[in-house]
């Protein structure tokens, strides 16, 4: 993910930013700062590389948080009071990238969605109703199940005895949450396979895990909709 506001960045700095614009020392990939002179560099990284992380699904969340705080401090506007306009601009852009990246990566589902999308998975509403849709994305048995669960939910809502209704809805929510947890466990099992495939360049293994995860994320979307609807009906959280 490259930043688009690179128009007024000196040419030498944008070209994959391999050397520092200030002292010409060579830079690590996606480095926010030069290790030699400490100057801020134009933002060039993606969500993982901004933290200096390999793109993997299993993340050390403690390390992620630590890096986030450390980098946030280094990018704090107070530190750029006397810097050039260009450097101020870079620090703001990097801050915003860092915040987006942290928010996306710390949540396991959004992290999975992000990484799989980077690898070509068609997840998200902009892909809904696409012409050449993979028929395995909407397996009949899953649709049957989701439809049935929705019907049950509707019946429960139409029931008139209040106490009983609330009870049944709470139970329904428990059931949906349990199903969702099951999906999450299955996702985690696939993370390991995907990461291993990425680690050892085993594309077949990585793609197989990716396909399974896309199906699991689809299932999860239906379930989280159900959970949300029950919660709305119950009127609490």
């Amino acid at each position: 993910m490259t930043m688009s506001n690179a128009a007024n960045i000196p040419q030498s700095a944008t070209a994959a930013a391999t050397v520092c614009w200030s002292c010409s020392a060579s830079l690590k990939e996606s480095a926010l700062f030069c290790e030699q002179c400490g100057k801020i560099q134009p933002p060039s990284g993606g969500y993982f590389s901004v933290f200096g992380l390999e793109p993997r699904l299993n993340l050390d969340l403690g390390m992620l948080e630590h890096q986030f705080h450390k980098l946030s401090r280094k990018l704090h506007p107070d530190r750029f009071g006397r810097a050039s306009e260009q450097e101020k601009e870079w620090s703001l852009a990097s801050s915003s990238l860092l915040n987006d990246a942290y928010r996306t990566l710390k949540d396991p589902i959004s992290r999975t969605r992000h990484l799989l999308r980077m690898h070509g998975a068609e997840i998200g509403e902009e892909f809904a109703g696409k012409d050449k849709k993979d028929p395995s994305r909407a397996p009949a048995d899953l649709l049957e199940e989701v439809f049935e669960l929705n019907m049950q939910l509707e019946e429960l809502r139409m029931g008139d005895e209040d106490a009983g209704l609330k009870q049944s809805l709470s139970e329904a929510r428990k059931k949906f949450v349990a199903l969702q947890d099951e999906v999450d466990d299955q996702l985690r099992a696939e993370w390991a396979k995907w990461d291993e495939g990425a680690e050892f360049g085993n594309d077949a293994a990585r793609e197989a895990a990716q396909k399974t995860m896309v199906a699991l994320l689809d299932r999860r979307r239906y379930l989280s909709n159900l959970v949300r609807e029950v919660t709305e009906t119950l009127g609490d959280s």
């Binding site: 509403e125 902009e126 809904a128 929705n150 979307r221 909709n225």
Partner: peptide, 13 residues
């Protein structure tokens, strides 16, 4: 016909 859009979670029969 039972169809769904997993991207938004809609189901239609």
């Amino acid at each position: 016909g039972l169809v769904g859009a997993p991207e938004c979670g809609d189901v239609m029969r």
